[in-house]
Design a protein around this nucleic acid. Sequence first.
DNA 1: TGAATGATCACG
DNA 2: GTGATCATTCAT
Length: 194
Amino acid sequence: MKKFSTSFFERPTLKVARDLIGAELVTIVDGVEAAGRIVEVEAYLGAMDPAAHSFRGRTVRTEAMFRRGGTCYVYFIYGVHYCVNVATRCEGIGEAVLIRAVEPLRGIEAMERRRRVKNLLHLASGPGKLCEALGIDLRMYGEDCCCSSSIRLQPGTPVPENSIVRAPRIGIRKAKDKNWRFFLKDSLFVSRRA
DNA sequence: TGAATGATCACG
DNA sequence: GTGATCATTCAT
């Protein structure tokens, strides 16, 4: 099986974000594999990005965001949902890519069970939804997405450069002007459709 | 449009 | 300790 090495994630964050479109996010929870093709992500650029959790420096919660590229950063939001990121660049920087939506590929039964929804379009079309579908929670915090036994990122079928759209990030109050969201053009599985 | 629901962080 | 805030989702 193809896989990314740490050096893939230790590149500039916007390049990693763009290159993760089309990649696969895979989890193995309770012995069950589930996988989706990434169709939407957002970059969070640490010390230069007021919207990033890492903006004010390393804390207990955000510590994984500061580890080396490829480290999994999971957080709990609104008292309801988990969201999953992968750290980028080198140890100590604090930048990451938020996975915002995936197209279900394998383990769809497990996803439907966890989500209590059957429509593929609603299964993982949002950062909270995809974590619920794939069984992602704080157990994955700090895991290495290159080689973890519970959560992995790996290359998928290549996506043409001109099918990747760059746009403003969603759901944030600060730094709304930055075009740091990337999504697969015409995908039905993104978090919001025009 | 607003409720749900809890951890985090700044402040003092 | 307290209170505002939050990279969301779903039903109304």
